[in-house]
Structure formats: structure tokens, C-alpha cells
Amino acid sequence: MLDATRESAAERVYREVKDQILTNEIAGGELISEGDVASRCAVSRTPVREAFLRLESEGWMRLYPKRGALVVPITDREARDVVEARLLLEGHAVGSVVADEAAREALARALTANLAAHAAADPGDVAEFSRIDAEFHQLIVAAGDNPLLADFFTGLGERHRRMTTASVHRDTTVATRILADHRSLLSAIRHGDAESFATGLAEHLAGVHDLRSGVRR
């Protein structure tokens, strides 16, 4: 029973700290201590240590004995690699959908509903705003009807979410741009224009994530 309680505490700390990293409440480059997290989560240091080890194994932080845990920042290389993977996956999905009128119309309806929810969301609630943003792109990849690619895209979801929240925190106008760009991407899908979609997506991701030299397509 004691082991189960400890494991439950470690899992809770892991989820809470990871969510704070993904939503930029704990920014990349910030050093946090076991003691501070233990106090905040009302647990002993043991489950915090276990949670930190798990987060380190996943690449979210680096541990420094007697100093604390450094939250690993998003590097330019990581951002570029995530964006390039997304361009390939989303572009492939739209290329598969545009020739199928029924599939294209179904995707357009789903994206229209997503945009309505996004427009109604409070940009100040960065976690919810980034969740709906990620859902928009997940709907596109899922429409490609390739479960292997969809699963791979889902694996990028946490990095995508973290990058988006960092961008919205960095520049409050990014939220407005995301909505405008999503409307343009939806229009390209409605018109069955895969080429315009690919060009618009590249510009969208480079702009939102501040990739000044653009991305390879």
C-alpha cells in the first residue's frame, strides 16, 4: 500500500510538472528544485525525485546533483525538425484527401467546428488555446487515413504544444495570426488546392514559431 501511494504521488508530480513545462509555466532554461516542487505538490522529496528522473529520461530536463533540475529549452534545431516533420505529414494527408470529395468535405466540416471553438477560446488561456491549435492539425493528419503516420504525428503533439505556448507567451499577436492562418489553410483544403495548402502551412509554421530562415519543404 505504501509503494502504491508513493507511485501515485510520483505520477501526480510527473503530470503536474510536465504540464507546466508544456504550457510554459515553467520556462525552458529555468532551474527548479526538488524541495520547491515537493512543497508545491504537498509531497515528500522521494516522489519528486522519481518524477524528475522520468522527465529527464524523456528529455524534458537535466538533473544537477545538489543544484536542481534544469528545464531543457526548445532549441532552434528541435523547432526546425518538428516543423519539417509536420510539413511532410500534413502535406501528405492533404494530398491524399483533396482527390476524394467526400473526405475533403468531411475534413472541412471538422476544421470549421474546430475554428469556431478556437475563435471562442480565451487567448489568455494558453493551455486551452494550444490544445485546440494542436487539434486542428491532428484532424488534418487523421483525415489522411494512415494510422502509422497519424500515430507518429501524435508523438509530436507534446513538442508542438510546447512550441505553440512558447510562441503565444513570446508574442501576444501570434494567437490572432494562428486563427487567420488556419482559416486560409481551411480554404485551400475546401478548394482542393494541395499546393497552396503546403505553401501556406510552411509560411504559417515558420511565422508562428519564429523560424527566420524559413523551413525546408
Rank of each mutant, 00 (worst) to 15 (best):
H92I: 13
H92Y: 11
A93E: 05
A93N: 02
V94F: 01
S96T: 13
V98N: 02
A99D: 07
A99T: 15
D100W: 02
A102E: 15
A103D: 09
A106D: 13
L107P: 02
A108K: 10
A108D: 10
A110R: 15
A110L: 10
L115A: 08
A117H: 06
H118Q: 15
A120M: 08
D122Q: 08
P123F: 05
P123E: 06
P123K: 07
P123W: 05
P123C: 07
D125Y: 02
D125H: 08
F129H: 08
R131L: 07
I132E: 00
A134R: 10
F136C: 06
H137D: 05
G144K: 10
D145L: 13
D145E: 14
D151F: 07
F153R: 15
T154Y: 03
L156Y: 09
L156K: 14
E158V: 12
E158C: 03
H160T: 15
H160R: 15
H160W: 15
R161L: 15
M163H: 06
T165Q: 01
R170T: 14
D171S: 11
D171P: 06
T172D: 09
T172I: 09
T172F: 00
T172A: 11
A175C: 05
T176M: 03
T176V: 09
R177S: 08
R177N: 09
I178W: 00
I178G: 05
L179Q: 11
A180D: 14
H182F: 05
H182T: 07
R183Q: 14
S184N: 12
S184T: 15
L186C: 04
I189D: 05
D193N: 14
E195S: 05
S196R: 13
A198D: 04
A198E: 03
